[in-house]
Design a protein around this nucleic acid. Sequence first.
DNA 1: TGCCCGATTAACT
DNA 2: GTTAATCGGGCAA
Length: 189
Amino acid sequence: MPKRLTKSFFRRSVHEVAPDLIGATLRFDGVGGRMVEVEAYHHTDPAAHSFRGQTERNAVMFGPPGYAYVYRSYGIHWCLNFVCEPEGSASAVLIRALEPTAGLSTMRRRRGVTDPRLLCSGPGRLCEALRISHRQNGFALDEPPFELFARSDAVEVVAGPRIGITKAVNEPWRYGLKGSRFLSKPFKR
DNA sequence: TGCCCGATTAACT
DNA sequence: GTTAATCGGGCAA
């Protein structure tokens, strides 16, 4: 049985935590899969929500590591982040894609599609598949209904520029599982 | 108060 | 390839 991720896992910089999440498992209420794509947002990064300081929306980012920060994207979708160290600095990792492994039929019903590649390949898609919304903002990642498990096998992690941002566009802070068919977009080789 | 725009997605052409 | 959907945050006035 893989090791559970506890809050200590997140007491590191996003630039260490983000690549370590590739291949790890995320489940919410038993539904989820293997994380194959994430992005790091450091508090010194102009693209981070926390860059301009604390607001009502991003308050969780300014709290302790090991909690979920969920925000509304484009007024339509939800996006899930894991808050990291150092506490109070407001850095987090955006979870962008899963390889679905648990609760596939539930995901298909919620998403309205059957292709497994379309269930969790994108930050908004995976939140719909796992039914994560603003209600989960501030939830602890090491307590139910969240379940996180460390990867149990060696993986090859690739890095590249982040997606959908207009600031710090060239920083290679998007991480993915090499060769995965479940990425939201391929990595340039 | 008003305006612009975004860590997206699906449905177009 | 382009664009509508949809709404709160952030900032100018």
